Amino acid sequence: MKKRKIEVAVISDVHLGTYGCHADELITYLNSIQPKKLILNGDIIDIWQFNKRYFPPSHLKVLKNIIGMASKGTEVFYITGNHDEMLRKFSETSMGNIKIANKLILELDGKKAWIFHGDVFDVSIQNAKWLAKLGGYGYNILILINSFVNWCLAKMGRERYSLSKRIKNGVKGAIKYVNNFEKTAGDLAIENDYDYVICGHIHQPKKEYYENNSGSCLYLNSGDWVENLTALEYSFKRWRVYYYNHDKLSPFFVDEDLKEMDMNELIASITDKGAETEEILKSPILKKENDLNFLDDQSMAQD
């Protein structure tokens, strides 16, 4: 089966380098599409919680797939988020078909799309980063507990259960925060004459028209690849939310032989793609194994 050709694909909140990341599922999704533009809308590599002792081959394979897509002509935009904020120092940097930015404005069929991660609306990140990082560690532990719970449920033949969604939906403050986030994004988009506003950050996939007294816009959130496993896709002048658990295509599978790939094999497989990719490998995103230590050290230094 051929890959689905789409105009734009948006993914965010992958959190590579954490136990909650569903890298295998994301690889399957990336193998099923051929987008003209791939937008990585923040928190792709989780530098906040980066640990060089945990970065499995499947997580490296995600990076390889993205670089491979870029080498074949896909425009890749890496928009920085709070968990990969260290890359903001490289904003406006281009490496072949890969571009790093803090925000992005695209014109799609005569309409303007305003794309950014969304952490700028998060007061805890702006004013108490240590508290936000502590919450990130707590969330990671909750995901680990949830994985064990779901393993037990699967053994009993029962459906998966999301503890974090249960907590979020049961806490009025969390609901209010999400509503305020969406309202702020919508108001600013209308004020600046954008037709679409596209965010990540809050792990809540959504497609909804937003209106106020000044006009309307389409609010879109790409969700995440920790709990919801979602993406945004644009084709034929329309947006849709892609849900991996419901929309996945069975002919596409994770490459089993790549699960045991180590760092040297990964670099060797990428460098075979030519000089353009070699230039990408010199970047701080994926240079060689010492660069992973560099990311870890820099993140610790910022703390």
Rank of each mutant, 00 (worst) to 15 (best):
A23N: 07
N31M: 08
C21Q: 07
K36N: 13
A23L: 11
I44P: 03
L40A: 03
D24Y: 05
Q49V: 11
G42S: 04
W48N: 11
Y54P: 06
N31T: 00
I27P: 07
N41L: 15
D43G: 04
H22C: 10
D43P: 07
N31E: 08
D43C: 10
S32I: 10
K36Y: 00
N31A: 09
I39D: 05
K37I: 14
W48M: 12
W48P: 11
K36M: 04
S32Q: 05
G20P: 02
D43V: 02
S32L: 06
A23R: 01
I44V: 07
L30A: 04
K37N: 00
D46M: 02
W48I: 15
I39F: 00
L26Y: 03
C21W: 01
K36D: 08
G42R: 05
A23G: 04
L40T: 08
N31H: 10
Y54S: 07
L30E: 10
Y29I: 07
L40K: 01
G20K: 10
Y29Q: 10
K52E: 13
G42H: 03
I27L: 14
L26A: 01
L38I: 07
Q34N: 09
Q49L: 15
G20S: 02
N51T: 09
D43Q: 09
Y54M: 07
I44A: 07
G20R: 00
I45K: 13
I44N: 08
I47M: 14
K36W: 00
K37W: 03
Q34E: 15
E25Q: 04
L30M: 13
Y54I: 11
N51C: 11
E25A: 13
I33F: 12
N41G: 02
D46E: 06
G20E: 10
D43L: 01
G42V: 03
C21F: 14
D46N: 13
G20T: 01
L40Q: 08
W48G: 08
I39P: 02
G42I: 05
I44D: 12
S32C: 04
N41Y: 00
I33W: 09
D24E: 13
N41H: 05
E25P: 07
A23F: 05
P35D: 06
N31Y: 03
T28M: 14
G20F: 12
H22E: 12
N31C: 04
I45H: 10
